[in-house]
Amino acid sequence: MTLALTWRQLTILRKNPSLFLPPMLFPLINFTAFAGGLSRLREVPGFDFAGNYTAFVFVFVLLQSAAFGGVFTGFGIARDFERGFARRLMIGATQRSGIVWGYALAALLRWSLVAALVTIVALVAHMQVGGSGIDLFGLYTLAAIVNVTGLLWACGIAMRFRSVQAGPLMQMPIFTVLFLSPVYVPLALLTGWIHAVARLNPITYVVGAGRGLISGEPSHVALAFAVALGMGGLLAVWGLRGLKRAEQIV
């Protein structure tokens, strides 16, 4: 069931490039805007990051693309409910949790293409990579967990509302949480309320560890993995309970 659903989702994407382009374009737009337009921020006193600004921004954009890769797959789930496919899927499934994991695997494969493209663009833009192979493996693993976490959030919403109209509910919280982390400058340079909020924001630790990994100066990596896996665990419960809710109504 899981693999069949994954294959179906990928086939839909292959046949409808218009569904694939926005998740591909948005990270590239952000990367261009941040890395190209804001590199002067590197000169702000106290900007302590070992790599160049392109690498600093790349980590955020990679994590953003991962989270939104999950959210965009959530749109597909909602569309499947609107068109009645999800109802038929539930009738046919022996183990329905496989539906959630099928969508999750599709989200992961879909995002891996976006991640590859963003990485190539960043390397062409002279991103400095100071981390070793293991560090980079850690970075992409962290991003993959964020991708599945984003999917589980969107899946929970899609299965509760069963309509694409719930799209803003899938996107806006993810967007807000991501941008309430140190996006443009390190945490120490944030001031006022955003500093206080960013310190409490779990994504801050994921972004910070990711930046440490790419620059070859890893710090708080275990904490970041614990946070990412913790969020993933909580949202797995959210997603699976959404499935239960959908089962009751369908």
Binding site: V44, V183, V185
Partner: peptide, 25 residues
């Protein structure tokens, strides 16, 4: 509502997130 809220959210987030840019000579 959406055209009102979205730019204001971005204003709130970016104006604080990029505040240190004012320290660029």
């Amino acid at each position: 509502i959406a055209p009102l809220v979205f730019p204001l959210v971005l204003l709130a987030l970016s104006s604080k997130g990029l505040e240190s840019a004012t320290r660029i000579p």
